[in-house]
Protein backbone atom coordinates (compact mmCIF):
# COMPACT_ATOMS: atom_id res chain seq x y z
CA UNK A 1 0.00 0.00 0.00
CA UNK A 2 1.25 3.44 -0.85
CA UNK A 3 2.56 5.56 1.95
CA UNK A 4 0.05 7.97 3.38
CA UNK A 5 0.91 11.49 4.51
CA UNK A 6 1.46 12.10 8.21
CA UNK A 7 -1.68 14.16 8.74
CA UNK A 8 -3.84 11.53 7.07
CA UNK A 9 -2.69 8.74 9.31
CA UNK A 10 -4.51 8.29 12.61
CA UNK A 11 -3.71 5.31 14.83
CA UNK A 12 -6.66 3.02 15.44
CA UNK A 13 -8.64 4.10 12.39
CA UNK A 14 -7.55 1.07 10.42
CA UNK A 15 -8.55 -1.19 13.34
CA UNK A 16 -12.00 0.40 13.50
CA UNK A 17 -12.38 0.06 9.75
CA UNK A 18 -11.61 -3.64 10.07
CA UNK A 19 -14.06 -3.94 12.96
CA UNK A 20 -16.62 -2.27 10.75
CA UNK A 21 -16.01 -4.72 7.91
CA UNK A 22 -16.14 -7.67 10.33
CA UNK A 23 -19.51 -6.59 11.67
CA UNK A 24 -20.79 -6.09 8.13
CA UNK A 25 -19.61 -9.39 6.75
CA UNK A 26 -19.63 -11.83 9.68
CA UNK A 27 -23.41 -12.47 9.70
CA UNK A 28 -23.50 -13.00 5.94
CA UNK A 29 -20.52 -15.33 5.95
CA UNK A 30 -21.84 -17.36 8.90
CA UNK A 31 -25.24 -17.81 7.27
CA UNK A 32 -23.58 -18.84 4.02
CA UNK A 33 -21.51 -21.45 5.84
CA UNK A 34 -24.44 -22.82 7.80
CA UNK A 35 -26.58 -23.05 4.69
CA UNK A 36 -24.31 -25.92 3.66
CA UNK A 37 -24.88 -27.76 6.95
CA UNK A 38 -26.42 -31.17 6.43
CA UNK A 39 -28.11 -31.20 9.83
CA UNK A 40 -31.82 -30.32 10.11
CA UNK A 41 -30.92 -28.45 13.27
CA UNK A 42 -29.38 -25.02 12.94
CA UNK A 43 -27.40 -25.53 16.11
CA UNK A 44 -25.36 -28.61 15.36
CA UNK A 45 -22.86 -28.77 12.53
CA UNK A 46 -22.96 -32.15 10.85
CA UNK A 47 -20.93 -31.63 7.72
CA UNK A 48 -21.15 -30.17 4.26
CA UNK A 49 -24.12 -30.86 2.06
CA UNK A 50 -26.29 -29.23 -0.57
CA UNK A 51 -29.36 -30.77 1.04
CA UNK A 52 -31.07 -27.48 1.86
CA UNK A 53 -30.50 -26.05 -1.58
CA UNK A 54 -32.23 -29.10 -2.99
CA UNK A 55 -34.96 -28.47 -0.46
CA UNK A 56 -35.43 -24.88 -1.66
CA UNK A 57 -35.94 -26.00 -5.24
CA UNK A 58 -37.67 -29.33 -4.79
CA UNK A 59 -38.87 -29.53 -1.15
CA UNK A 60 -42.36 -29.14 0.28
CA UNK A 61 -42.18 -25.35 0.26
CA UNK A 62 -40.53 -25.04 -3.16
CA UNK A 63 -43.77 -24.16 -4.96
CA UNK A 64 -44.34 -21.33 -2.51
CA UNK A 65 -40.80 -20.04 -2.96
CA UNK A 66 -41.01 -20.25 -6.75
CA UNK A 67 -44.26 -18.30 -6.81
CA UNK A 68 -42.78 -15.71 -4.45
CA UNK A 69 -39.60 -15.47 -6.52
CA UNK A 70 -41.61 -14.98 -9.70
CA UNK A 71 -43.71 -12.25 -8.05
CA UNK A 72 -40.61 -10.52 -6.69
CA UNK A 73 -38.75 -10.60 -10.00
CA UNK A 74 -41.62 -9.65 -12.26
CA UNK A 75 -42.66 -6.80 -9.97
CA UNK A 76 -39.07 -5.58 -9.67
CA UNK A 77 -38.60 -5.60 -13.44
CA UNK A 78 -41.85 -3.77 -14.19
CA UNK A 79 -41.56 -1.34 -11.29
CA UNK A 80 -37.95 -0.43 -12.07
CA UNK A 81 -38.54 0.06 -15.79
CA UNK A 82 -41.68 2.15 -15.22
CA UNK A 83 -40.20 4.26 -12.45
CA UNK A 84 -36.97 4.81 -14.39
CA UNK A 85 -38.94 6.05 -17.38
CA UNK A 86 -40.93 8.43 -15.19
CA UNK A 87 -37.77 9.54 -13.41
CA UNK A 88 -35.83 10.14 -16.63
CA UNK A 89 -38.55 12.41 -17.99
CA UNK A 90 -38.82 14.21 -14.66
CA UNK A 91 -35.06 14.67 -14.40
CA UNK A 92 -34.86 16.22 -17.88
CA UNK A 93 -37.75 18.56 -17.02
CA UNK A 94 -36.32 19.52 -13.66
CA UNK A 95 -32.67 19.88 -14.63
CA UNK A 96 -32.97 21.20 -18.19
CA UNK A 97 -36.11 23.30 -17.74
CA UNK A 98 -35.56 26.88 -16.64
CA UNK A 99 -36.39 27.67 -13.03
CA UNK A 100 -40.10 27.89 -12.38
CA UNK A 101 -42.34 28.50 -9.43
CA UNK A 102 -42.82 25.24 -7.63
CA UNK A 103 -39.57 23.63 -8.70
CA UNK A 104 -38.57 23.15 -5.07
CA UNK A 105 -42.01 21.77 -4.29
CA UNK A 106 -41.62 19.37 -7.22
CA UNK A 107 -38.31 18.21 -5.86
CA UNK A 108 -39.80 17.65 -2.42
CA UNK A 109 -42.67 15.72 -3.99
CA UNK A 110 -40.33 13.53 -6.04
CA UNK A 111 -38.15 12.76 -3.02
CA UNK A 112 -41.15 12.26 -0.74
CA UNK A 113 -40.98 8.45 -0.91
CA UNK A 114 -37.42 8.62 0.46
CA UNK A 115 -38.22 11.12 3.22
CA UNK A 116 -41.39 9.58 4.56
CA UNK A 117 -40.64 6.57 6.79
CA UNK A 118 -41.44 3.33 5.00
CA UNK A 119 -43.94 2.23 7.62
CA UNK A 120 -45.86 5.49 7.19
CA UNK A 121 -45.92 5.08 3.42
CA UNK A 122 -47.15 1.53 3.98
CA UNK A 123 -50.00 2.67 6.26
CA UNK A 124 -51.02 5.52 3.98
CA UNK A 125 -51.00 3.31 0.89
CA UNK A 126 -53.05 0.61 2.59
CA UNK A 127 -55.63 3.13 3.79
CA UNK A 128 -55.77 4.76 0.36
CA UNK A 129 -56.22 1.47 -1.51
CA UNK A 130 -58.94 0.34 0.85
CA UNK A 131 -60.69 3.73 0.65
CA UNK A 132 -60.81 3.76 -3.18
CA UNK A 133 -61.70 0.07 -3.24
CA UNK A 134 -58.48 -1.04 -4.95
CA UNK A 135 -58.27 -4.81 -4.50
CA UNK A 136 -55.07 -5.76 -2.69
CA UNK A 137 -52.85 -8.20 -4.54
CA UNK A 138 -50.22 -8.31 -7.25
CA UNK A 139 -51.26 -5.02 -8.88
CA UNK A 140 -51.38 -3.07 -5.63
CA UNK A 141 -47.84 -4.24 -4.82
CA UNK A 142 -46.68 -3.19 -8.29
CA UNK A 143 -48.23 0.27 -8.01
CA UNK A 144 -46.75 0.86 -4.56
CA UNK A 145 -43.32 -0.25 -5.81
CA UNK A 146 -43.43 2.08 -8.82
CA UNK A 147 -44.13 5.00 -6.49
CA UNK A 148 -41.31 4.44 -4.05
CA UNK A 149 -38.82 3.51 -6.79
CA UNK A 150 -39.17 6.88 -8.56
CA UNK A 151 -36.80 8.89 -6.33
CA UNK A 152 -34.23 6.09 -6.25
CA UNK A 153 -34.15 6.16 -10.04
CA UNK A 154 -34.39 9.96 -10.17
CA UNK A 155 -31.36 10.80 -8.03
CA UNK A 156 -28.60 9.13 -10.09
CA UNK A 157 -30.19 10.23 -13.36
CA UNK A 158 -30.51 13.85 -12.26
CA UNK A 159 -26.95 13.79 -10.90
CA UNK A 160 -25.64 12.48 -14.21
CA UNK A 161 -27.67 15.04 -16.14
CA UNK A 162 -26.30 17.89 -14.04
CA UNK A 163 -22.83 16.64 -14.93
CA UNK A 164 -23.54 16.87 -18.66
CA UNK A 165 -22.95 20.40 -19.84
CA UNK A 166 -25.90 21.86 -21.79
CA UNK A 167 -23.40 22.88 -24.48
CA UNK A 168 -23.73 19.41 -26.04
CA UNK A 169 -27.41 20.04 -26.55
CA UNK A 170 -26.60 23.46 -28.01
CA UNK A 171 -24.09 21.81 -30.32
CA UNK A 172 -26.62 19.22 -31.45
CA UNK A 173 -29.28 21.86 -32.13
CA UNK A 174 -26.68 23.92 -33.92
CA UNK A 175 -25.99 20.90 -36.14
CA UNK A 176 -29.64 20.68 -37.20
CA UNK A 177 -30.86 18.01 -34.74
CA UNK A 178 -34.57 18.21 -33.95
CA UNK A 179 -35.58 17.81 -30.32
CA UNK A 180 -36.24 14.12 -30.80
CA UNK A 181 -32.93 13.54 -32.60
CA UNK A 182 -31.16 15.52 -29.92
CA UNK A 183 -32.56 13.21 -27.26
CA UNK A 184 -32.08 10.04 -29.29
CA UNK A 185 -28.52 10.64 -30.53
CA UNK A 186 -26.94 12.90 -27.94
CA UNK A 187 -28.67 13.20 -24.58
CA UNK A 188 -29.81 9.60 -24.17
CA UNK A 189 -26.43 7.98 -24.91
CA UNK A 190 -24.68 10.46 -22.63
CA UNK A 191 -27.26 9.94 -19.90
CA UNK A 192 -27.24 6.15 -20.24
CA UNK A 193 -24.88 5.35 -17.33
CA UNK A 194 -27.13 7.39 -15.03
CA UNK A 195 -30.24 5.69 -16.38
CA UNK A 196 -28.71 2.25 -15.87
CA UNK A 197 -27.62 3.16 -12.33
CA UNK A 198 -31.14 4.40 -11.59
CA UNK A 199 -32.67 1.29 -13.09
CA UNK A 200 -30.43 -0.99 -11.07
CA UNK A 201 -31.07 0.94 -7.88
CA UNK A 202 -34.83 0.84 -8.41
CA UNK A 203 -34.64 -2.87 -9.20
CA UNK A 204 -32.76 -3.71 -6.02
CA UNK A 205 -34.93 -1.44 -3.88
CA UNK A 206 -38.05 -3.10 -5.24
CA UNK A 207 -36.64 -6.58 -4.74
CA UNK A 208 -35.60 -5.62 -1.23
CA UNK A 209 -38.83 -4.14 0.00
CA UNK A 210 -40.59 -5.83 2.84
CA UNK A 211 -42.60 -3.33 4.90
CA UNK A 212 -44.72 -1.72 2.20
CA UNK A 213 -45.24 -5.01 0.39
CA UNK A 214 -46.32 -6.64 3.63
CA UNK A 215 -49.06 -4.00 4.05
CA UNK A 216 -50.45 -3.93 0.53
CA UNK A 217 -49.99 -7.53 -0.64
CA UNK A 218 -53.36 -8.80 0.46
CA UNK A 219 -53.96 -12.43 1.31
CA UNK A 220 -52.27 -15.17 -0.67
CA UNK A 221 -49.78 -13.10 -2.66
CA UNK A 222 -46.21 -13.30 -1.41
CA UNK A 223 -42.91 -11.87 -2.54
CA UNK A 224 -39.62 -13.40 -1.44
CA UNK A 225 -39.13 -11.07 1.53
CA UNK A 226 -42.67 -11.59 2.86
CA UNK A 227 -42.35 -15.35 2.33
CA UNK A 228 -39.04 -15.42 4.18
CA UNK A 229 -40.42 -13.24 6.97
CA UNK A 230 -43.42 -15.56 7.34
CA UNK A 231 -41.12 -18.56 7.57
CA UNK A 232 -38.68 -16.92 10.01
CA UNK A 233 -41.47 -16.03 12.44
CA UNK A 234 -41.48 -19.68 13.53
CA UNK A 235 -37.69 -19.71 13.84
CA UNK A 236 -34.82 -19.85 11.40
CA UNK A 237 -34.83 -23.07 9.45
CA UNK A 238 -31.91 -24.31 7.34
CA UNK A 239 -33.79 -24.07 4.05
CA UNK A 240 -34.34 -20.36 4.72
CA UNK A 241 -30.61 -19.98 5.15
CA UNK A 242 -30.05 -21.66 1.79
CA UNK A 243 -32.62 -19.40 0.16
CA UNK A 244 -31.07 -16.35 1.82
CA UNK A 245 -27.64 -17.36 0.59
CA UNK A 246 -28.93 -17.62 -2.97
CA UNK A 247 -30.46 -14.16 -2.75
CA UNK A 248 -27.36 -12.80 -1.09
CA UNK A 249 -25.18 -13.93 -3.97
CA UNK A 250 -27.61 -12.67 -6.56
CA UNK A 251 -27.46 -9.23 -4.93
CA UNK A 252 -23.69 -9.28 -4.67
CA UNK A 253 -23.34 -10.32 -8.30
CA UNK A 254 -25.61 -7.46 -9.35
CA UNK A 255 -23.70 -4.87 -7.34
CA UNK A 256 -20.33 -6.15 -8.48
CA UNK A 257 -21.51 -6.02 -12.06
CA UNK A 258 -22.71 -2.44 -11.75
CA UNK A 259 -19.49 -1.48 -9.97
CA UNK A 260 -17.37 -2.96 -12.76
CA UNK A 261 -19.58 -1.35 -15.41
CA UNK A 262 -19.27 2.02 -13.71
CA UNK A 263 -15.51 1.62 -13.47
CA UNK A 264 -14.99 0.81 -17.13
CA UNK A 265 -17.27 3.71 -17.98
CA UNK A 266 -15.26 6.18 -15.96
CA UNK A 267 -11.97 4.79 -17.24
CA UNK A 268 -13.05 5.26 -20.82
CA UNK A 269 -13.98 8.80 -19.93
CA UNK A 270 -10.62 9.64 -18.42
CA UNK A 271 -8.47 8.13 -21.12
Amino acid sequence: MAKVAYVKNYPGFLTLTLVCLTVLYAPLIIVTIYSFNSSPSIIIWEGLSLRWYKDVFFGIESAKFKAAAWNSLSIAVMASVTSTTIATAAAIGMVRGKAFRGRNASFVLISMPIMVPEIVTAVATLIFFSAIGFVLGYTSILVAHIVFCVPFAYLPIAARLRGIEPVYEDAASDLYASRFQLFRYVLFPMLLPGILAGLLLAFIVSLDDFIITNFVKGAGVETLPTAIFGAVKQGIKPNIMALSTILLFVSICFVTLSYLLGRTGSQAKHK
Binding site: I86, A87, A89, A90, I92, G93, M94, R96, G97, K98, F100, S106, L109, I110, M112, P113, V116, T121, A124, T125, F128, V143, A144, I146, V147, F148, V150, Y154, E169, R179
Partner: peptide, 20 residues
Protein backbone atom coordinates in the same frame (compact mmCIF):
# COMPACT_ATOMS: atom_id res chain seq x y z
CA UNK B 1 -36.46 20.72 -23.34
CA UNK B 2 -37.58 23.82 -21.46
CA UNK B 3 -40.91 24.20 -23.31
CA UNK B 4 -41.75 20.60 -22.43
CA UNK B 5 -40.71 20.69 -18.80
CA UNK B 6 -44.20 20.53 -17.28
CA UNK B 7 -45.14 17.61 -19.51
CA UNK B 8 -41.94 15.82 -18.59
CA UNK B 9 -42.40 16.22 -14.85
CA UNK B 10 -46.14 15.57 -14.97
CA UNK B 11 -46.02 11.74 -14.72
CA UNK B 12 -43.85 11.98 -11.59
CA UNK B 13 -46.22 14.55 -10.09
CA UNK B 14 -49.23 12.38 -10.85
CA UNK B 15 -47.78 9.10 -9.65
CA UNK B 16 -46.41 10.42 -6.38
CA UNK B 17 -49.14 12.97 -5.82
CA UNK B 18 -51.90 10.44 -6.33
CA UNK B 19 -50.32 7.40 -4.71
CA UNK B 20 -48.38 8.97 -1.88
Amino acid sequence: FDPLKYWLILPAWLVIGFFL
